[in-house]
Design a binder for these strands. Structure first.
Lengths: 193, 193
DNA sequence: CCGAAATGTAGGCTGCCACTTACACATTCC
DNA sequence: GGAATGTGTAAGTGGCAGCCTACATTTCGG
């Protein structure tokens, strides 16, 4: 009998470093040599775990959603006076963009025209949007459905522009906090009684 | 005497096609061969007009701002019941992203780490933000300055997310109109008396 | 019409990138 | 121990992208 296949675990070990590379460098600038160096291994090792670079990127997108979803869920188990939506807002204002969520989106959109990548990005965004919509409904109460979809997109847009502003050095931490504090409540709407 | 130098005019002739290419393909995927083909000329011709590809991209960023600024100014000369801000909103909801504004931003952020390109993008965004702030102040009245900066960023964020949604096939024209109609007024604030 | 400089065309060079081949070594179970 | 398979390392390969060289052609003023 041969030694057991640990490739599944190996993938899980390497993915965070790979995700970080793609988020920092974008798709095109992330060379497979760079990935191997960050993983402290050889290119061929990566190519035995995934068939090609594109698949590595797709794996990162899944990984990112899982990571984010876990962070969000954890956020929501805390029970105090704040609504889930308010907590989401506060979390975003301080930790926004930590996992390079938006960097990956930009990279996927502008660096590639691959339909699979676009589909994966669309699914990622859709799931994020649905998550925010649910939190908004909890906050506002189920009866106040009007404009919830739009408000959720606007919140995501706010996160996006906050990240762009950070990237370009236009908004520092205080500016981004002020952004969430000022605009956030407008989009959250009235708190459920 | 030699024939006159028409390189200035030539640059102006070619820039729209170059801008289109960068917006559609992103920075990395836009090869100099592709640029030459779209300009119906040879690579070396481009290299006689600009020293390198990066400079071509920087030229596009300037060009884009000029084009956009011209479109906005034209927009604002119309005189009717609507405030400038309302017209801006309406314009964005229908024509948003026509010149690939956001595609170029994404490309610049994720495709390159060049400080010159980041500076140029930052300037572009800053000028756009200032423009929106001015329109908001006209709309709200000079006394209602609180939160104007933030509202302007949020409006730009809304435009960004609308573009991303369009790119990924998540938001069609009607969705994007609804987005502006629902969220826009929240961010515009009360109309000046 | 002629010299000077702009403009067009063909081809090539260098370096990098995604991906591969070849082979030594390690680990498992019988 | 040994067959079978996983894992590590070194060294390519082919292709393409950015950029350049060499040279022919056009357009201008004198």
């Amino acid at each position: 009998m041969p030694r057991p296949d640990r490739s599944h675990e190996r993938r899980a070990e390497l993915l965070p470093a790979i995700a970080k590379a793609f988020a920092e460098l974008g798709y095109r600038r992330t060379t497979t040599a760079e990935l191997a160096a960050r993983c402290e291994t050889q290119e061929v090792v990566l190519y035995r775990l995934w068939p090609d670079k594109k698949t590595m990127f797709l794996a990162v997108l899944d990984h990112i959603y899982d990571t984010s979803a876990a962070a969000w869920e954890k956020l929501l188990t805390a029970t105090d006076a704040q609504s889930a939506a308010e907590r989401l807002l506060e979390y975003e204002s301080t930790h926004h963009g930590e996992w390079g969520f938006y960097r990956l989106i930009f990279a996927g959109i502008s660096d590639t025209d691959d339909p699979q990548i676009r589909d994966a990005l669309a699914r990622l965004y859709t799931r994020y949007h649905e998550f925010v919509v649910r939190r908004l409904l909890e906050h506002r109460g189920e009866r106040a459905k009007a404009g919830v979809e739009q408000a959720a997109w606007a919140l995501i847009g706010l996160g996006t522009i906050a990240s762009v502003g950070k990237e370009l050095g236009l908004l520092d931490n205080r500016d981004r906090s002020a952004l969430w504090r000022t605009v956030g409540p407008l989009l959250l709407g009235k708190r459920q009684r």
